[in-house]
């Protein structure tokens, strides 16, 4: 990092260069009063600039006292391995989908789910918002959900239906849960599941940017959120944003913020995306919307599509899992395994 890259006011950068401070080392060596005089600014402003410069210089490694203090926030690969092995997953409701996802939707990762209209993206989003709340004693995370709805697709009566389906499956696989303490029984009601979904209705891309910026504060105030679902990330940026270059830059900023949030708060971020057509190799093909630069923003990408008469999920991108596809179905209870699945049916929970 050089002086031109410092996160300080533009005019100050220009004045620094004009005054002859051409390197971080030179700037770091200056005293606040001298810098204030050279730049014709207040001493406290000079102190701020020097604070930033000294920090940047240390990051550069020029005068670093020791490795561990210079590289703040670093984690060695072995510790990361332990961290990854203990990560939690959110059940999708379909064992086959869980299998290709390596256990389910991963916390600390951003997962994109896209598909054609009517294939079940919102159904899966709602299912995840319910499944994240499955109590720990029944194999779930016992967390809460933030559902950011940009399309108005969230139908609360359907959410209730899916919650009922989830509860009936818990009762089916854990027949003795009636013996549990009253507190445990209280959770197994659809109203409890709906009470722990925080719903934001977004009506413009500005509001979408605002809610993503606000999430950090929101998550600090509302504990135990384990999933943030944006349904869809596409709609307003596709409808209302005309400056494509600026759109790309804004979306990049948003995706970085979402990645940070998922790691800082140990939650999963799920972004639902629409499809568009792309002219490739002499013919039109379906592809997820928002373009190629956006596709770098997600850790995992799951594409939902029709294969004959069945719904399928295709794991298109993941750093640690092979490309694979799996059937699933949308039933009255929600997302489940396809009834004629060749896989042996395992416990949904």
């Amino acid at each position: 990092m050089e002086i031109a890259d410092l996160p300080i006011a533009t005019s100050h950068r220009a004045n620094l260069l004009a005054a002859g401070y051409s390197s971080l080392a030179a700037l770091s060596a200056a005293s606040p009063p001298r810098l204030a005089r050279d730049l014709s600014i207040e001493v406290h402003e000079a102190e701020e600039i020097l604070k930033v410069a000294v920090g940047a210089n240390k990051s550069k490694g020029a005068d670093g006292p020791s490795t561990s203090s210079v590289l703040k926030g670093v984690q060695n690969a072995w510790d990361m391995l332990s961290d990854e092995q203990s990560r939690r997953h959110i059940n999708t409701g379909s064992a086959d989908l869980n299998n290709i996802l390596g256990g389910g939707i991963h916390c600390k990762e951003v997962t994109e789910i896209g598909g054609v209209p009517g294939v079940g993206k919102t159904q899966l989003g709602i299912q995840l918002a319910i499944n994240v709340q499955i109590p720990v004693e029944y194999g779930g995370l016992g967390g809460k959900a933030v559902y950011i709805d940009t399309e108005g697709s969230f139908m609360v009566e359907r959410v209730y239906q899916i919650a009922e389906g989830c509860i009936s499956d818990i009762l089916e696989y854990f027949p003795h849960c009636h013996d549990k303490a009253p507190a445990g029984q209280e959770k197994l009601k659809p109203e409890s599941f709906l009470a722990d979904i925080y719903y934001f209705r977004i009506c413009s891309y500005t509001e979408q940017i605002a809610v993503i910026n606000y999430l950090e504060k929101f998550l600090g105030e509302h504990k135990d959120v384990r999933i943030v679902i944006i349904d869809s990330v596409t709609f307003h940026f596709r409808q209302d944003f005309d400056d494509m270059a600026l759109r790309t830059r804004v979306l990049s900023g948003l995706s970085l913020k979402l990645m940070k949030l998922s790691k800082a708060y140990n939650l999963a971020v799920v972004l639902l995306n629409q499809v568009t057509t792309k002219f490739t190799e002499g013919s039109f093909q379906l592809t997820l919307a928002l373009g190629d630069s956006w596709s770098h923003s997600c850790t995992n990408r799951l594409i939902l599509y029709w294969n004959g008469n069945e719904r399928y999920g295709f794991l298109d991108k993941s750093p640690s899992l092979p490309v694979a596809s799996a059937p699933y179905a949308v039933t009255v209870k929600g997302v489940r395994d396809a009834v004629n699945s060749n896989s042996k049916r395992v416990r949904v929970m």
């Binding site: 609360v156 009470a195 509001e207 605002a210 910026n213």
Partner: peptide, 19 residues
């Protein structure tokens, strides 16, 4: 950005309140 975002963000509701 943080201040403007907090004010520009629409208020949330729980799904139960919607129901």
């Amino acid at each position: 950005v943080a201040h403007v975002s907090e004010i520009a963000c629409p208020p949330y509701q729980t799904a139960l309140a919607l129901l």
